Amino acid sequence: MTIRQPTHTPYDGSSKLFTIGLKPLELERWIEVDEFLLPHLAEKRRLYAEIPEKVFVEEHGTRDAQQEVLDLLSAYLPAKYPESHRAAGSTVEVIGLEGAVDEPPSGLREAPLFRASLLVQEDLILMRRGGNGWRLAAGSLCFPSSWSLLEKFGKPLQEIHAPVPGFGPGTRPADLINRMFDGLQGQAVERFNWSIQADDALNHPLYSAQRIDRATNRPTRFADGDINAHAFIRVERQTLRKLPVSRDILFTIRIHLDPLSVLARHADRIALAASFAEQLNALDQAQLDYKGLTADRDRLVGYLAQMAKGA
Rank of each mutant, 00 (worst) to 15 (best):
T2F: 15
Y11R: 07
Y11S: 09
K16V: 10
L17K: 11
F18G: 04
I20P: 00
L22R: 11
I31F: 06
E35Q: 14
L38I: 14
A42Y: 02
E43W: 03
R45Q: 15
F56L: 15
L72V: 11
Y81A: 05
S84V: 07
R86G: 07
T91R: 15
E93R: 15
E93Y: 06
V94Q: 09
E98F: 01
V101C: 11
D102N: 14
P104A: 11
F114A: 04
R115A: 14
A116H: 10
S117A: 12
Q121T: 12
R129L: 11
A137R: 09
A137E: 07
A137P: 12
I160V: 12
P165S: 10
D182F: 08
G183V: 01
Q185H: 13
A188G: 14
A198G: 14
I212N: 08
D213M: 04
T220S: 15
T220H: 08
R221P: 00
F222W: 07
A223F: 11
A223N: 07
G225N: 01
I227F: 03
I227R: 01
N228I: 02
R234K: 05
R234Q: 05
T239M: 05
L240T: 03
L240M: 11
K242S: 09
D248K: 03
R254C: 10
P259H: 09
L260I: 14
L288H: 15
K291T: 04
K291Q: 12
L293V: 10
K309G: 06
A311G: 01
